[in-house]
Design a protein around this nucleic acid. Sequence first.
DNA 1: CCGGGCTAGTGTATCGATACACTAATCCTG
DNA 2: CAGGATTAGTGTATCGATACACTAGCCCGG
Lengths: 353, 353
Amino acid sequence: MAKTTIADVARLANVSVSSVSNLLNDRSQRMRPATRKRIQDAIEQLGYTPSFAARHLKTGHSPFIGLIVPSVADPFFGSFARYVEEAASEKGYQVLLGNSDRDPEREKAYAEMLWGSGVRGIIFGSSLVKFDHLESLYREGMQFVSFYRSTHHGDQFSADTIGVDNIQATRLLTKHLLALGHRRIGFISGPTDMICRLDRVAGYTTTLNESGIDVDQQLIWEGDHPSPGKASAYLELGRQGAHYLLSLPDPPSAIIAINDMHAFGVYAGARDLGVIIPDDLSVAGIDDIVVTDIAVPPLTTIKQPIHDIARLSVERIIDRMEGNEFQEAIHRILPSTLLVRESTTNFAGRSNH
Amino acid sequence: MAKTTIADVARLANVSVSSVSNLLNDRSQRMRPATRKRIQDAIEQLGYTPSFAARHLKTGHSPFIGLIVPSVADPFFGSFARYVEEAASEKGYQVLLGNSDRDPEREKAYAEMLWGSGVRGIIFGSSLVKFDHLESLYREGMQFVSFYRSTHHGDQFSADTIGVDNIQATRLLTKHLLALGHRRIGFISGPTDMICRLDRVAGYTTTLNESGIDVDQQLIWEGDHPSPGKASAYLELGRQGAHYLLSLPDPPSAIIAINDMHAFGVYAGARDLGVIIPDDLSVAGIDDIVVTDIAVPPLTTIKQPIHDIARLSVERIIDRMEGNEFQEAIHRILPSTLLVRESTTNFAGRSNH
DNA sequence: CCGGGCTAGTGTATCGATACACTAATCCTG
DNA sequence: CAGGATTAGTGTATCGATACACTAGCCCGG
């Protein structure tokens, strides 16, 4: 019951605590195999595990990384969290999870708690347009890696960013729909307080412009902030957006939603109004969350390489924490791919109404 | 950049470190208001935050709780994790997340890492039938609370269990389907290595028996373990199960799936075979995950009070960690409710084939 | 056979907070 | 006004590991 310490091991193995410590920290090059074995046996016998608290107190760093996402109840971030945890645990790190609901105050409070707990690196699963609230922590030495922040908008400090090209994502979707003959394409966005969202809107508008189509601002629906904590909030927003767009005098024949949850909300909204997908309306999302391919109809979407992103994020944050502090920030963009499924189809002309 | 310590504060406020520590730990009853203010000002001025590592080393406990779930990529556990984190952070605790894939080895390894990190309490989001692999940790003083483990099967030690009555859950579903006229009701279970699953199967079989219907073992499909890490694994299992059950010489007219993800797999499997839900086949799940009500058709399911369960779990684990160690284990069952939606309907007689 | 260099370790101050045993100064109370 | 009780603190050993400055013993060259 009483915790066994490094001293207990040293006593049993008849060596000094220093030697045990050296072995534990891979500084045992110049140690006789016999001695090494004695120590290892003692560790085994006592079931000794080092105290991270003591180690942390002495060395100043802990085997923890922070992960802040809007909400793990969102299937997309749930998957992301899962991969982050997996990669971290392979490297001997543990993940402290925080849900921010995209609230800068909560993000800041959380990050500060983490700092107090000895965490020196945080992965953000999503980022607000402004990063200012984290500047003071950065000054103290906290390291950041941010997923989902494709472009850097003159931040005051250097955080790694890893993600997909969000502009490219909506560009692919918009081109796909244009190729199917759609000309009035709606966009359901939610609040554009995050960089990924701004980029996604931009990809949509620039692609339309390049194709000689004027962007009709009426076709861009920007929802309010959802009430925090409700996993179904995005569905509801998508539904509201669909109601709005489909009730326009000249409604769109296709809708791009900012993510798959919003897209499924569009499914519900369309059903409310008796609009059939894909016959009357093509719908596309982004993320490829777990249920997209068994939805009815299966959802056309953009698949993000979130497994790779998670692993890379973990590698980077550990690199940064383990000392190579003043290296340049990296801004890595990984490719995303268009998955064409049955929710998008050829524009069949304006249905009679 | 250099961390400010309790000694810095004491120096600035012209008191001893003991006094600062006393203030920080609410032992300042007998301290002059003026002194208290001096200390508080010094803390403010220096931006001092206590080192959790040092505190932990001295006191033996840390502000962390562990949360082990099969996978946060599963929307159900994602929601659960979200609520656990919320409740914990309100109480000043942080959540360390682990994904076990229901592998006892991984559970054990994870729990031991947590112990080494100073974590003295773990919430399990799901539990394996056997808890033996955790016994040695329990001996050392680790506390456990387990969600989803409705009955206690003679464990060697006392862990709190909080959850829903899984027997009752499938009982409600089975009765509902019987009331609709269904007599051949299939059950898709996945491996029955977890208590909640055993209970769910039991609720189904006993209810059938009580109604004078012989349980046809052919109608119970037990899938293999899914490949770890794949969020879509349950969908695939449900699909396989549906293929099997619907290809029987005398197929069921209704299927209960062990959870909603499996149920959506049944949706996919039914579609593969041209079976229409609910006309040809009624389907019901358990969990009420986020997309159930916008599925086509919306899924009849059992809603678990997972928000309450999460909060209660956090309260209990903190209680247990904070010393009242040898209190009795509690076994709390919270009510779950049947949500009837459009995926279940009256048995219409055997469709011609 | 002396001394420099190497091997295989050892001894101990230290990280930052806490807990417990102290004590100086003041206040009663008989 | 002696002396016990109370108030408002203080001093320091301690938690468990690490880092760095040591050193005992041996080898080998000159």
